[in-house]
Simulated assay, not measured.
Amino acid sequence: MRGQLRKLLDTADYPNVTLQILPREAGGSPGLEGPFAILTLPDPIPDIGYTEGPAGMVYVEDRDRVRAWTLRFGILTELALPCDDSLDVITAAMNLLE
């Protein structure tokens, strides 16, 4: 597990990566609805939603559903710890494993 945490810290250094932790104190959140991704492509192609689960993967092109996922992402980002605090939490967890 220590190696996995180290990999997260290393990945956080990439310019295209934002790493945030959603603390337990946030309680129930839109994150409980399951994993998703929003694929943003060059104009004029609209954003596309992507999710996967036991039934397989699904691409969602319906603009209202993609907008709902975009709002969900914004809520999760606001509930999550700031990047620096998230990295501190990961570092502390990694140090406990020494």
Rank of each mutant, 00 (worst) to 15 (best):
P30E: 01
G31E: 03
G31Q: 02
L32I: 13
G34S: 05
G34Q: 01
P35R: 01
F36Q: 04
F36S: 09
F36G: 09
A37W: 02
A37L: 06
I38V: 15
I38D: 00
L39Y: 05
T40N: 04
L41I: 11
L41Y: 10
D43S: 13
D43H: 12
D43L: 13
D43T: 13
P44L: 09
P44T: 05
P44D: 01
P44Q: 02
P44N: 06
P44W: 06
P46F: 07
D47S: 14
D47M: 10
D47W: 00
I48S: 03
I48L: 13
Y50Q: 00
T51H: 14
T51I: 12
E52L: 07
E52D: 06
G53E: 07
G53V: 09
G53A: 14
P54Q: 11
A55H: 12
A55E: 12
A55K: 10
G56W: 03
E61R: 05
D62A: 11
D62P: 08
R63C: 11
R63P: 15
R63Y: 10
D64H: 07
R65Q: 15
R65H: 14
R67P: 01
R67Y: 09
R67E: 14
R67I: 11
A68E: 11
A68S: 14
A68Q: 10
W69I: 13
W69R: 07
L71H: 10
L71T: 11
R72T: 01
F73V: 01
G74C: 03
G74N: 02
G74T: 01
I75A: 12
I75C: 08
L76S: 02
L76D: 00
T77M: 07
T77V: 10
T77D: 05
E78Y: 02
E78R: 04
L79C: 06
L79I: 05
L79Q: 05
L79S: 03
L81C: 00
C83L: 10
C83K: 13
D84F: 02
D84A: 14
